[in-house]
Design a protein around this nucleic acid. Structure first.
Length: 589
RNA sequence: GGUCCCAUAGCUCAGCUGGAUAGAGCAACUGAUUUCUAAUCAGUAGGUCUCAGGUUCGAAUCCUGAUGGGAUCACCA
């Protein structure tokens, strides 16, 4: 619609001798109840026209109609100039733009962006909260890629620390040599089992110590299990062979488990970072900050930054004993990532509970004068909560990722079979379809809402397959494919001799043309939800069209060909948009 | 207590760079299948956009304050 905006700028200059910029032009979609496709709000121009909104709109409308051949008609309602664009313009958009191979393929913008997501702890299996993280990260990476970025997907694995030692201690104490093979448990679930055991036994020890007269704080520090875990962490850092060997073994189990979960989720990474390699990083940045006077040292030797002028607090960046804290590592890792890839932007997909941490992290890097600190962004998303409250792995009150995905698969299978949709499918095709639909429902459910909003998930209420859902959109795609295959449609077979459009056909083309700008909007806003809502609108429009217009029994052959083209274009865009969400669309369902 | 985020139909959510009568889905009710897939479509009903001020020709949208919910304010990660 840029050509209209340009023409409006020119119109205001010619009619009212006033210079405005493209940004001042308020062009919006015309509401359904009025004639036209785009609407110009004319109130802002009444000042310079010194006429009423109706007359101003009419003058601009006449000017535009004379200037632009693409404008078929216009009408002015109150202060709104509704513009009808010619059918030949829309048909041209469909044939030369939407149906072309490079539609919605952005030219490379020369920028590199890293998306860090997933970042699991290697002591427990993934749960629903991680699923949201993984889907957001993967989808955002796809969207940025489609918007022209070169994308690096990174995973910073949290594979060391006291929490990892907890699972290891519990396994050593209670495990009796259990392995994934001997237990039949997936590796990450096996580690998680001991993590939960640790917590249980630890709590019991605390209780016992309290009964012996210790305070709760004392008991928490003195419980034998926690001491053992702390001891193990020291041994790990000292490179104790037995501990390192156990660590490698158990982490190996967890990685095997994660690999399965990631595969089912359909996510992947270009680069892995491991905290066991990066946890000592950042100390040279602390030195740098001290030299620059950004940090200061307290009497006890600990190093701090004073952020009170920025409305934040004083923040510790290095302990008195010279060991790192969380933010020390993150400073070092940020530098490492930049040194590795020299990216223009770096996005951290991390829950909103860490908003403060990232605010501080980015601010420190700016104060250190890192040129690349400008490109850092925290994609903060809301927690996934249960009706009973927060999910806690330690207490076992989580919706497990693998269980949930298996449930979705089963529900998809039941629903599909109940509808009798899989006659003539092979066993293999059936399973593939159930997985596609089940994962589609789950992914769409999580991605359609604004990332920053917190999400309530009730395990008792199953995820819908009808209405504003993934399967609805998948169904639309399958339905189109069915028609196209009945018609033996190929791009080459179609002809171009339709010149007029009906309301719903025009609406559908208008919706299709919005895809590239929707990608740009989603990329700029870091929000897959923008794509999700767009593709829903598109599927709805298509279904309306499908009901109103007969395709294979069209009144004329040329109409049939045109509607097939329109259907093919819709299927293509649906498939691409769903791909940006990491959701597959089936050919049949 | 300080800071940050959220609040729109019974429920789940769009709309938020200010624009027309605030839109979808679910749930409820009515209707559509001798015709391309009914996981669909058409319709009915459902709203003081949390509240109170302010800015503006115009506010769900921007500003201020309040209320409710969540997060965070560790020499944990």
């Amino acid at each position: 619609m840029d050509f209209i905006i340009e023409a409006v700028v020119k119109a205001i200059k010619d009619l009212y001798q006033t210079d405005i910029t493209a940004k001042d032009v308020n062009l919006q979609e015309t509401r359904k109840e009025f004639e036209g496709q785009v609407t110009l709000v004319t109130f802002p121009y009444t000042k310079v026209s010194r006429k009423g909104p109706e007359q101003t709109g009419t003058e601009i409308g006449e000017y535009l109609q004379n200037a632009l051949p693409q404008i078929a008609a216009f009408n002015v309602v109150k202060g709104f100039l509704n513009i009808s664009i010619t059918d030949s313009y829309w048909l041209d958009q469909l044939r030369t733009d939407i149906l072309s191979d490079d539609f919605a393929v952005a030219k490379p913008n020369g920028k590199k962006v890293m998306v860090e997501y997933s970042s699991p702890n290697t002591n427990k299996p993934l749960h629903l909260g991680h699923i949201r993280n993984n889907l957001l990260g993967f989808s955002l990476a796809e969207i940025l890629g489609a918007a022209g970025y070169e994308v690096i997907k990174a995973n910073l694995v949290n594979d060391r620390g006291i929490h990892i030692c907890k699972s290891m201690v519990a396994w050593r104490e209670f495990g009796q040599g259990e392995t994934p093979e001997s237990s039949g448990l997936k590796g990450d679930h096996l580690a998680g089992k001991y993590y939960v055991w640790f917590d249980k036994a630890y709590k019991q020890q605390i209780q016992e110590l309290i009964e012996e007269g210790q305070t709760e704080d004392e008991a928490k520090k003195n419980a034998p299990l926690i001491k053992e875990a702390q001891q193990m962490l020291l041994q790990w850092e000292a490179g104790d062979e037995a501990v390192i060997s156990l660590w490698k073994t158990m982490n190996g189990w967890v990685y095997e488990g994660f690999a399965v979960t990631y595969k089912t989720l359909g996510v992947s990474f270009d680069k892995y970072y491991y905290e066991s390699n990066t946890y000592l990083l950042g100390k040279d940045i602390v030195e740098e900050g001290l030299a620059k006077g950004v940090f200061f040292k307290k009497e006890d030797g600990s190093v701090w930054i004073d952020l009170t002028e920025d409305g934040l607090d004083q923040k510790l960046v290095l302990r008195a004993d010279g060991t790192s804290v969380y933010i020390t590592q993150d400073l070092g890792t940020a530098q490492l990532k930049y040194d590795d890839f020299k990216m223009d932007e770096s996005i951290y997909v991390v829950g909103n509970e860490q908003d403060y941490h990232f605010k501080v992290l980015f601010l420190i890097l700016q104060k250190l004068g890192k040129s690349w600190a400008q490109g850092l962004y925290h994609l903060s998303y809301g927690m996934v909560d249960l009706p009973s409250g927060k999910m806690k792995s330690r207490e076992g009150t989580v919706v497990d990722a693998d269980d949930l995905m298996a449930d979705m698969f089963n529900t998809a299978a039941e629903t599909t079979e109940a509808m009798g949709k899989v006659d003539g499918f092979s066993e293999e095709d059936k399973n593939k379809l159930y997985r596609t639909i089940g994962m589609g429902a789950l992914k769409y459910f999580l991605l359609k809402v604004d990332p920053k909003k917190r999400l309530l998930f009730d395990p008792k209420e199953s995820i819908d397959f009808q209405g504003h859902t993934g399967p609805f959109i998948q169904y639309t795609h399958a339905r189109i494919k069915s028609v196209l295959s009945r018609a033996n449609y190929t791009a080459a077979s179609s002809t171009n001799d339709v010149a007029e459009l009906d309301g719903i056909e025009r609406d559908l083309i208008v919706t299709l043309t919005k895809f590239p700008e929707t990608i740009a909007e989603a990329a700029a806003g870091h929000s897959p939800a923008v794509i999700a809502n767009y593709v829903y609108e598109l599927a709805k429009n298509y279904n309306k069209f499908y009901h109103e217009k007969s395709i294979l029994q069209a009144e004329e052959e040329r109409l049939k060909q045109f509607r097939l083209q329109l259907s093919a274009a819709s299927a293509k865009v649906i498939s691409k948009a769903m791909g940006l969400l990491g959701i597959d669309v089936p050919e049949r369902m």
